[in-house]
Design a binder for these strands. Structure first.
Lengths: 238, 238, 238, 238
DNA sequence: TATGAATGAGCCTTCATTCAT
DNA sequence: TATGAATGAAGGCTCATTCAT
């Protein structure tokens, strides 16, 4: 299973953008082309996808294992051949969701920004990709970000750790900008990073609310970017 | 019950902080044991509090009505004398939570900011009060903000509507600043408002994570405020 | 409480047509004008009436004591001051119902028929009165005749005993006709009596079905009477 | 499920005595353990039988689903695999009961009577078979005839409809006799049919009362038959 | 291996009954 | 005396999980 605490190492590397999203239970070497997903692996994947859909649609507690089985087109017992319990299945579903989110965040570009312009572009890029995902699967995101933390404390901790890691990445990223001189010196990068992370939230709410037109989305991304730029650069800049 | 769609009217007015949630007790005169005026209200309140605690602790779906009853120190049947169903009880719990949040947000000051300094002060104030509440009752907030939207669509809509209303208030507030000239003209106030609202989130996460020291809290509030100030004022300002 | 096994003595006497229907818990002398029903008695009566209505409407099991209390306009606890349990209340309700049925059956006339014509008239009379009651309160009758026997064995026995008693009365009545010569000699009066009793059933069903027009009712009474006349008299008669 | 409104068509035809209540098992071919054809049907039947017994014994409202499960020797959950609710189970129980009653009524012979003697024989036959059933399972009959109508209005309507249909059949049967001249012309066949139907009741009561000796039963059938004969034929016959 | 039948713990809810006032 | 608040036993029903085939 994907160990979320490791994402700190995975994400910045950003070279493994094409890792097959099957994720979780792959105990095999991640390098090289996984020659062919075994039948069992494909079943697992199929089940995780179905569980994603079903949990996202009805919520984890409300959804039943037989809903999942039905959605996957298998018998109920079969689910238990691949996942020992509902809870464990959820873990995999969340891994799947987190993986997709991370792919969206890191998607393609892996370069460190070298100037404010670079940064601005990257922020816009991340925002765009994230909102695309959000609009494509608002329920999945809701499941991962909102509902999961309500299941139990372990999950809550994991999710919070994820945010922490992302913020830490962002902060170290900003630190470079500060050292390089194109970000204002007195920036509390850690806190700014948390703040910036949180600004996806409105896009998310927009999508949940269902009034996420392309125009509104663009407006929000523009506003967000310029806002952040001003905030990061400080008053002395043009 | 608090009608959330009315908060737009309630919040700015800010004078009716103590609206009773359930209306006055019926003063009918009858034979037999007098219904002990106020007892019902007290019980209702006691139960809502217990339900708050229990739902926040275990999650709405997972918590059982008998947990609530046990927590309140009454028999299970008693809960049903005051709330016809688990779902209805949740509604009241959420009302309670939203009310407390709104009180925190609007707390005390009701004046329109007349300058950037005013605004900055107000933002700090709101942030402070909110974080105080968050730290006092992180679970309640989690319940209201996070979990509720996963219960059903009606609740999701209500919560989203709440955010929308708050943003609209904030936006119209900013509009005045733009018109008065102390905020930059090209501000997309609506989007900025959404973005600003979302910036409570890190404070919230901090509290959930449990590492919300006074020092970190202060750092976040400071960063947030200055960040917002720069963003709102634009580059031309000192 | 009315002891149903005693009705055999009460009914043929048929002189007490005006006994106040309060029935059940009257442990006082039934002779003479019961000077004034005590307040308690009136309450009991009021409760029995309400229980009649409520039990008849929803069925005994389905109806709740608080429905009864509400219908009577008293507190729930009050019901228990007059009847120690729901079951006991039912007993009184049934007594009330049976009493009304018996009054309908015996209503007014008390004379022994002296000829086939008399008998025919009496049968028509009984049928008419019974159907009037049935149409006025089909639910009460359903309660007494249909539902009660499903409550428990004691009640079942009581109801069956009631039918038995009525049949016995009817049989001894017919016996006189046989001895007097205006009924055919080979009549198995006991069985005939049972059969005749059962012929109220269709009228009852008619009423339950709701299509009991005056015309249909008349047709049934006529048919029934003539049918019985032929059956009783045998072939040798005109 | 047996559609009671169709019994008018089913009964006279009398050739489809074994219509399966639930339809054929779906013959799909799948992986995994084969669904063991017929098992479901057997379980359903077993459960209906148990439910019959339990409902008849304690009454529908009073009996609990776990009583039924216990009687059938299965877990409570199992009952719900076959019937979605207690009410639905009752429907099947009643279908079962009605079916058995109809089989008793129509049993074997399907011929239209051609003379009074035929009719007399048929009536005796029906009565005999019915009483045999009644004595074998008085509780089932009580459930079907007595208690069911107290459950809810839909059931009441269905039962009344059943009686109506039977009477209509009987009436049309009698009509032929009138046209053929061996029944008196002025017979109100519809009402007579209702009346005749109701005459099973005493046999039923006899059984419930528990004093249904063979001798008494025979006496009642004889009396009933002769009584009806006189009534049908009228005074002009020998 | 895949299946679905079987299960029972546990949930929400109702209601007859008790009892302090 | 009348009341209604309080209660807990019990019921219908769901569903995660097990297991024989």
């Amino acid at each position: 299973m994907l160990n979320w605490s490791l994402i700190a190492y995975r994400v910045p590397a950003m070279e493994s953008a094409s890792t097959p999203t099957t994720g979780p239970a792959k105990p095999r070497a991640r390098r090289g082309r996984p020659p062919e997903l075994g039948l069992a692996e494909r079943r697992r994947h199929q089940l995780v996808e179905s569980a994603c859909a079903v949990f996202a649609e009805h919520g984890y507690e409300t959804a039943s294992m037989s809903d999942v089985a039905k959605h996957a087109g298998v018998g109920q017992g079969t689910v238990y051949r691949y996942f020992p319990s509902k809870r464990e299945l959820l873990d995999h579903v969340l891994d799947h969701g987190v993986e997709r989110m991370l792919d969206a965040v890191t998607g393609g570009e892996a370069t460190q920004a070298e100037s404010l312009e670079d940064l601005s572009g990257q922020i816009s890029g991340i925002a765009e990709r994230l909102f695309t995902l959000i609009e494509a699967e608002p329920n999945l995101l809701k499941l991962v970000l909102v509902e999961a933390s309500a299941i139990d404390d372990e999950l809550k901790a994991r999710l919070l750790g994820l945010e922490n890691t992302l913020s830490a990445m962002m902060a170290s990223y900003l630190d470079k900008g500060v050292r390089a001189g194109w970000l204002r010196e007195d920036l509390d990068t850690e806190m700014v990073a948390h703040g910036m992370n949180s600004m996806v939230v409105p896009g998310f709410l927009l999508a949940l609310r269902g009034d996420a037109t392309a125009e509104r989305r663009a407006r929000y991304v523009t506003t967000l970017t310029s806002f952040v730029m001003f905030g990061l650069r400080g008053p002395e800049a043009a």
